[in-house]
Every structure is written in structure tokens, then in C-alpha cells.
Nucleic acid binder design. Structure first.
Lengths: 209, 209
DNA sequence: TATGTTAAATGACACCGTGTCATAAGTCAA
DNA sequence: TTGACTTATGACACGGTGTCATTTAACATA
């Protein structure tokens, strides 16, 4: 998290800093991004950067969090409007993300973020759907919206694992779309196939028994 | 890939280099590893390193490939011995990996690799099961071993997606185990729950129809 | 053995980025 | 105005990277 000094800044300067950082992280992946470029873009002296942030990872994950928070709100709304249909909602969010990724700036930022996946980023993706891990309130927020009659699970404890599975597969599909430069149609078709497989199950036994 | 010079080296020197590199990558994640340390450990001058490799990523991914190749052979054997039961084989490989991860050196290397997940690493994990992407032979090698009567899929084209799903979820479980320091029992239990969910399907509709 | 040719080894060096720190400049209350 | 505290600033020390000119080794050929 940025230092308190950062949050004491005028709105305009704060925005300027974030904008500069996002631009740099859109240019190259995290490991190649340089603080030198960020301060040049934002027109602030190098020392100031360290007044606001601990290091470049600090800004980077803060930016990512801003993105994630926005999407999470959207996800919760979709879930409401679909009367708690979890699979359909994942589908909807996946499609919306693909559309968002046509906006040049955000695309490049997210592309660099996602392709250069660190464990923290996959976690932040999970948070999109489940909220901050181990924060029970956030998990409940989703769980209360989900229509369990549409899910094939015995215990509410299994719900957590359902979300883990859906998140892993969805994330994978986003990464694939970006790394292989798939068209929207291809990406959606791939995702549809995998969601269908998840719905009906991979093992034949159950459709016989 | 390392340069040809590297492969012309005496076996002992090549091994020494790789051992030094693995030790450094076991110490810290890729981004923090330094070539300076590797050459110090291997007792070779700095310039030599660049005679053998393009950069540190080059050694790193080569090491990772050596690990992956070894596991892939094992996976194919398990698949044979289980008469093509895909789900059971994934289970078996997952358990074996957990056991391998008790060996200190390899644990730390893989932990750093997996936690600091880059897109390339998840890809290399997929290759473990599917072989190099777009190399048709490698995919067929697995597909020919799989018993399709145990799988709930209509077309062989769906097989690829089944593997994608299984790989994503398995990979996620390995990452979780390492990042949250789960015990073997917990990790196996989590994995079992998710594999069961995948088997039976997430959606209720199919168990009714 | 002498000679030429190619491959490999070596470490000094220029370059770049990081994070720190001493100092200067504000802010605000008494 | 003074003092206490917060923020700004940029020079600097440190460490890592990749290159390159030079040396050394390997080996073929006459």
C-alpha cells in the first residue's frame, strides 16, 4: 500500500502519478518498468516517489487493486440481475472483460499484468470474485447472492472450491486470449466449451448413475 | 535456450553451472536472482556466463524444462499403468509432486518458480501434461493413452479443453499448497474435493436430466 | 614443428536503475 | 517569530547488467 503521504496529496497530483505509473506499466511488464520513467512522466523528482511509495511493486499492485475493485462491484451486480446464476454470471463477466480489453491503454496494462503473471496477480483475480481471502464478509457477500438450487453441491463448504475452480479456468482463458491474441469469437467459444464441460462434469460415471 | 557453447562444455562443468544456477534460483525468486551470484557459485568468470546463456531467464527456463521433461515421462507412465484413467492419473501425479516437494533443494527452486508465476511457467506446467503446445505428436501421445470411455465428452476436440481445465486446477492447487504452506493432508483433501466436483459437474441440471 | 584459423575465456568497463540521506522548503499552531 | 513537524529535492553510493577488446586454447594443415 502507498504511504500516507500519497493520500495527503492533492487529487490532481495523485491522479497524475497514477496515470504516469499506469502508462509505464502499459509500456513494459513489471520487471522492466522503471521508476525513472514514472517520475519523468509525472514530472516529480525521484526522491518524491519514495515519499509516496515503497517501491514499484507498491504502485503496481495498488493500480491493480483499483482495477479489481471496480470489476468486483460489477460482478456483484451481474450476479444480482441474473438471480444468482453463478455460471451465467461468470460467463457475463468474462465477456465484459474481453470488451474492456479493446481500450488501448487498459489493454496494455492488463496484458502486461496478466501475461507476466505473478502469484499475487492470480490472487487478485480470485479476489475479484471471492473478495479478499480470509475476509469472511466478502465471501459471504457473494455466497448470499448465489442461487444454490442451480449448483450441484452438497455442502456450502464446497462452494469455496467451486469458486476456486471457476476462477482458475476463467483466469486461464483470459491469459490465453491475451497471449495467443485470440479473437473475441475464439476466446468466447473456448470459454463456452470449458464452462459447458464444467457444468456437465468431466467423468462419464455420473451421467449413467 | 542456452547457446551452443554451453552444450560443448565438459559434462562436469555443465553440471556445475546448472547446479549453481539452481541454488541461486532456490535462494530467491527469478527477479531477485543475480548472475553475479551464479558465476561466484560456479567459479567461472562473469564473461563466460554470457558465452553460455543469453541472460538469467535463459538458464532459468532451461532448468525448468529439465524438471518438466522428467515429470512428463512419469506422467505418461502413470497413465499407462492406470489403463488410461485420466482423472486418477492427475491425482497420482499431484500426490507425487507433493512428495517430491519435501526435498529441500527442489522445493525451494519450485516454490520460487511457482509462486512467482509468469505466464511461461504456467505454460510449462501445461506442457507437462499436454506436451509442447501445437506439437501435435505430443498431444497425441497423451490422447492415445487416455481411456475415453471414462470421460464424459462428445468429441475428441473437447479433450484438449478437458486437459486445459485439469491443468489449470491442478496448477492452482500446487500454488496454493506452496503459498499457504498447507500440509500434505490439507492439500490432498482440497485437491480431492475439486477433482470430485470436476468429475460430477458443477451444475445441477445434468444430474436431474 | 610451425602456422594459421576458429572457438572459447576473461575481466575491466560503461551504462543504468535503485534506494537513501542530508538539506531545503513548506505548513501550521502558539 | 519561533519551533515542531511534514514534505520536497536531487546528489550519491551501491550493485547489477551486458559488451568488448584482448588473451588463451584447440585443432587442422603443411
Amino acid at each position: 500500500m502507498p504511504k500516507s503521504t500519497f493520500f495527503n496529496l492533492h487529487d490532481s497530483k495523485r491522479a497524475k502519478l497514477l496515470q504516469a505509473a499506469e502508462k509505464e506499466f502499459a509500456r513494459v511488464p513489471l520487471s522492466q518498468a522503471s521508476i525513472a520513467n514514472i517520475v519523468k512522466l509525472a514530472c516529480v523528482p525521484r526522491g518524491s516517489f519514495y515519499q509516496y511509495f515503497h517501491d514499484k511493486e507498491d504502485v503496481f499492485y495498488y493500480l491493480l487493486k483499483l482495477h479489481t475493485d471496480k470489476r468486483r462491484v460489477y460482478f456483484l451486480n451481474v450476479l444480482k440481475e441474473s438471480n444468482g446464476d453463478l455460471m451465467d454470471s461468470m460467463d457475463q463477466v468474462f465477456r465484459t472483460m474481453l470488451i474492456e480489453l479493446t481500450e488501448e491503454e487498459h489493454l496494455k496494462f492488463l496484458k502486461n499484468a496478466v501475461l507476466n503473471v505473478t502469484h499475487e496477480i492470480e490472487d487478485s483475480f480470485t479476489e475479484l470474485f471471492l473478495g479478499k481471502q480470509h475476509e469472511v464478509d466478502a465471501v459471504n457477500q457473494v455466497r448470499d447472492l448465489v442461487d444454490f438450487d442451480k449448483l450441484n453441491i452438497d455442502s456450502k463448504q464446497e462452494f469455496f472450491h467451486v469458486m476456486q475452480i471457476l476462477t482458475s479456468v476463467t483466469f486461464r482463458n483470459i491469459v490465453d486470449k491475451l497471449s495467443r491474441n485470440l479473437s473475441h469469437e475464439e476466446a468466447i467459444e473456448n470459454f463456452r466449451i470449458e464452462m459447458d464441460l464444467l457444468r456437465k462434469g468431466l467423468s462419464k460415471a455420473n451421467s449413467e448413475g
